[in-house]
Design a protein around this nucleic acid. Structure first.
Lengths: 239, 239
DNA sequence: ACCTGAACACCGTTCAAGT
DNA sequence: ACCTGAACACCGTTCAAGT
């Protein structure tokens, strides 16, 4: 059900990526939404390593140079992508659950989403919220939830920033190879650490990253709430 | 045809970037240490954006292709750099201070170092400690400090990983532009968040990142220690 | 063993010409 | 306004030839 480009009365048997002559197309062929969707599709298929302006243009059926009528730079594509991806972070808990459980759920979702998009993390670090409406909507949802729970206004931004820092670092950790802590030939030089790693490897049923994340999340939620004068109502949610 | 122009009192401190003929040099001209030092010098002068294999070769007085007799890839240069930089993280506190103060000092130093080297953060996420002796030495120092303080072995690695995640995220945050939270034209759509940002801007004397870092660090140290069955002996160190 | 110089297969981006 | 196609100034990396 895609509409072919209706030009010149030629035979239009093929679908979308048709040969197109130079000049303004009858119907707009590029837009922020379509470029973002194409970028996302490329990432899904081949990962971030395959996301080039060329690949993007090819998937959209245009010449690479055509992209620059709509985008300032590849960096801007990444910013669009970042804001798009952010909209899949789940803040629905704030409508239904006690605030501390909602906060934990948001943090887990946030980490899961960006574990699949780690190359966007450096982009966020510089991203102006004024140009990222869905990112801003996420902050608004979290803030509203905390305000409603009685958090003092002055404590909210530091708490979000601290949690976010932890979340981004944990997103990297979630996709790290499991054997990074194998000390190998250097085991003798690091007896304490080697023993600690062994201890951990024996315990966790698989993902050591998971227990570190849950431990850190629990500490942060409890500690930041305490500083805000609140007490958490429930313990850490078990998976 | 230039002849030795760097003879007297030039600002080129190291040995001769002289014209050299093909073939094996009398004395080795490249090594991990020299390549790392050159890379560091380039970063110090022009930032990570100027660190290219070409620039590296130029500073070492060789052709770019010569580097590949010593290095597998640029990625390997970054790994060397990472391990080198890690050695400037300060773990000396574990020898002198109560463990919780030592842990806080280590975390602050760690964050400060990588705030100046954020492009290395994705490198660490994949770095095998077996090939990074100084990184391993750092882990060993921290682990030994915690063991001596009475931490149960099984709790140490998750605690370090959680702290590290927070530290990396905070390193990005430390170098973010201050105005990223300005909601601008979208202020009306995000009343709670806009108010919270304003509240924060009025309070912190400059760096909002700093108060978030200290709040998160305090929560993590206290919470992780509690889970390990320990109690922190002193409150957060004030700067 | 380890250098040089030429070459390769890419990048992101610019711009004149075309409609 | 917005496309194409050619071109530009880079990248990281490979490899034959040279000593």
């Amino acid at each position: 059900m895609k509409t072919g480009a209706m030009e010149g009365g030629g035979h239009m048997t093929q679908d979308e990526p048709q040969r197109r002559s130079a000049g303004r197309p009858v119907k707009e062929v590029l837009s922020q939404a379509r470029i973002t969707a194409a970028a996302l599709a490329i990432i899904k298929t081949g990962g971030y390593g395959t996301l080039t302006m060329s690949a993007l243009a090819k998937r959209l059926g245009v010449a690479p140079s055509a992209l620059y009528n709509h985008v300032d730079s590849k960096q801007e594509v990444l910013r669009w992508l970042q804001d798009h991806v952010m909209s899949s972070v789940d803040t629905s808990g704030f409508a239904e659950l006690p605030w501390d459980q909602a906060l934990r759920g948001w943090a887990r979702s946030y980490r899961d989403v960006f574990a699949r998009h780690t190359p966007l993390i450096p982009v966020i670090a510089v991203l102006q919220v004024s140009g990222a409406p869905r990112t801003l909507a996420m902050y608004e949802a979290v803030t509203e939830g905390l305000v409603r729970a009685g958090w003092p206004a002055a404590q909210i931004v530091p708490a979000i920033v601290a949690l976010e820092s932890f979340i981004y670092g944990s997103a990297y950790d979630a996709v790290a190879p499991q054997e990074i802590f194998d000390t190998g030939a250097l085991a003798e030089d690091s007896p304490h650490f080697t023993a600690a790693v062994q201890e951990q490897a024996g315990r966790a049923d698989g993902r050591a990253a998971e227990s570190a994340f849950e431990a850190g999340l629990d500490a942060l939620v409890t500690g930041l709430a305490g500083r805000a004068g609140l007490r958490v109502e429930s313990g850490p949610t078990q998976l």
